[in-house]
Design a protein around this nucleic acid. Sequence first.
DNA 1: GGCTAAATCTCGTGC
DNA 2: GCACGAGGTTTAGCC
Lengths: 265, 265
Amino acid sequence: MNVRVYQGLGLDEYVGVLRKAVREHKLVLIMASCSVDYEGRGASTLGEGERVIIIKRDWAFLIHRPDGYSPVNWQPQSSIIDFEVHGGLLIIRAVRKKPREIVTVRASDISLVVVADMSDTAEFIEYVSEHEIRDLIARNPSILGEDLKITNIEKPVEPGFVDLYGIDNRNRIVVIELKRVTATKDAVSQLHRYVIAVRKSLGRQDVRGILVAPSITRSALEYLERLGLEYKQLNLKQLRRMLEEEKKKSDRKPGASLLEFLKRE
Amino acid sequence: MNVRVYQGLGLDEYVGVLRKAVREHKLVLIMASCSVDYEGRGASTLGEGERVIIIKRDWAFLIHRPDGYSPVNWQPQSSIIDFEVHGGLLIIRAVRKKPREIVTVRASDISLVVVADMSDTAEFIEYVSEHEIRDLIARNPSILGEDLKITNIEKPVEPGFVDLYGIDNRNRIVVIELKRVTATKDAVSQLHRYVIAVRKSLGRQDVRGILVAPSITRSALEYLERLGLEYKQLNLKQLRRMLEEEKKKSDRKPGASLLEFLKRE
DNA sequence: GGCTAAATCTCGTGC
DNA sequence: GCACGAGGTTTAGCC
């Protein structure tokens, strides 16, 4: 990694360094005392204070206060970034086209500028996503504690997509909405929409709606029962164990899924 | 701002610097080549690559790749952070108690460490939030183009909260759900829940549900009409003008709102 | 601590 | 380009 650190430069020198760095899509860090205005979908102002400003290679733009997870102001990638000196201040403007939004930084005191050439090509692999859980249940519907046959994954309806769709042992259609976190009334509404849509499109009333989640809020459960829908609890720990089991098995016979195997390499 | 820059130190020296900085709640920046594992609500792994790591005063923990708005891994404030050297690598662990989550960084090449004393006490002021729009409509219900009387803001029902609640000129109860962005089917469901709840609790059917938003998706509009609910378009530009007008007025007679006046000073 | 809903949400995916 | 839904969403507000 090629890293250059600048301190104690004049404003005009800083502007030169920053313009060049951004033009060349380097990663830029600025520590400065500044004030910030934002106007776009919303609007905000922030008085003078010391912050970290990050400009990424793709011109994503982040302003972080010394505390907290989230940036206080920002602009997502491919905004346009420019610098100028005005009234003894360094003005940084980050402009987004659509929606039209502008973040304006007025920096009075620049303590540090870092310009870095960074290389990061690694793949980011996530496990235990709703995706993975959904497919696991599709392969092993008995997880839900009854005799179901899953016929569709992400079946389109209305518009919208039913996570899992199948038939129970009494030939009733089953619509399943899956959540990997506590289910709220929003999730119940979502399931309800799908059930209504399926009933309407099939012209039959014996369509069950099942909300599958590790937990559910009290009022969501009441709401769900009032709508004649069902809730089934998910055991996440058990699911994880099953996922690991499956992974081990496919490791033993990698021919079964070459792509999976390659990914793991 | 007191800023210290470290480069070219040995691993043990870096650990010493980092431990001290974190213990003293300084802001810490690290540029390094590293791999990252996460395990908690979800799980992920990320191979070797060059990244920026930020540890904030409150021990919020961020790992940023060279591109994109969002951190690839993170830990919110008040996680526990510790450093150690193991097998020629700098290991950073950020642990969150509830939910139990761990981020583990294995850094092989440290290009830069910055430790800074930052001070930022400025107030962050947001405009044009749903909050503000809601209160403006409550004061001027004629914005909605009919003769309404708003009686409640954030009226609790069911549980849940109705943004605006009032009576129309034919004595019908009006339930208003407000969105400052394009309304989706989720918003329609939300409004529907409230209308059902109010009808039930009052034991009367003449309860109108109005979704107020700058725009609405096609399918959300269909869904809304099928449910017998109404949509009213918001003119955000007009609202902003009105908000500015009101602000000017209150500037002219600051006695009216001393607190507001003080805030503006 | 649980629940509810907003957010300049962002981001991916599908049409 | 819009719409829809997930997210380790986070954050704020209220009970």
